[in-house]
Design a protein around this nucleic acid. Structure first.
Length: 205
DNA sequence: AGTGCGATTGACT
DNA sequence: GTCAATCGCACTA
């Protein structure tokens, strides 16, 4: 488990964010994703992310820009939010230069601030289920298509924070739930962290 | 204009 | 472990 979070982190500047997709995915592990809501902030530490690189057949930008995926082509550090299977929103951080379609899917958060708010949004009290998985994470932070394209390096409705975030040991694996280019080791996650997705949990913890 | 499907989740055997 | 819900959109015609 990581040390206690800084509940008043500073907004990461674009200059601090690596532009290159894999470097960005690694960099984001341990950083904070903060959602500002009328009721207060809801935030969590990013413990799992996947890179969808240039030329990646599994990436939503693979077939070029469309109305849905255009945010992936923004300069690095913008949000790309899409809907999958008619029910789950997925939140990505765009990477690379403007005009290049690539990004990093945020797959899991360790809840930090606004836990009661996230519990309400998710309809469960279980800490482990609040933001473990990309769809759950989006539901906990009330992320939907209205946030598509927002600048995550500005103090706004959704942003990335990093001040005082200690590093954690990062492990690497294949990505989850994809068919094309499934062999690539582009998933990064905090070692020994219970809030990482892709593993079944017993009911009692 | 119609069709097929997905970077998932939760319920159930 | 299996399986279906659910809908925007990309693709074909």
């Amino acid at each position: 488990m990581l040390p206690p979070p800084n509940l008043n982190p500073s907004v990461l500047s674009r200059a601090e964010l690596p532009a290159e997709t894999v470097a960005l995915a690694r960099f984001l592990i341990g950083k904070l994703l903060v959602r500002r809501l009328p009721e207060g902030n809801a935030s969590g530490r990013i413990v799992e992310a996947e890179a969808y690189v240039v030329g990646d057949a599994a990436g939503h930008a693979y077939r070029g820009m469309t109305p849905r995926n255009r945010s992936l082509f923004l300069e690095h550090g913008h949000a790309y939010v899409c809907l999958v299977r008619g029910r789950s929103y997925l939140m990505n951080v765009s990477s690379e230069r403007a005009g290049i379609g690539a990004g990093v899917l945020i797959r899991a958060l360790e809840p930090c601030d606004g836990i009661a708010l996230m519990q309400r949004n998710r309809g469960t009290a279980r800490l482990l289920d609040l933001a473990r998985g990309p769809g759950r994470l989006a539901q906990a932070l009330q992320i939907d298509r209205r946030l598509d394209g927002v600048d995550l390096c500005c103090d706004g409705a959704l942003w990335l924070g990093g001040d005082g975030c200690p590093p954690c040991a990062i492990e690497r694996s294949k990505r989850i739930g994809i068919r094309r280019d499934a062999w690539r080791l582009l998933r990064f996650y905090c070692a020994n962290n219970r809030f990482v997705s892709g593993q079944r949990r017993p009911n009692n913890c």
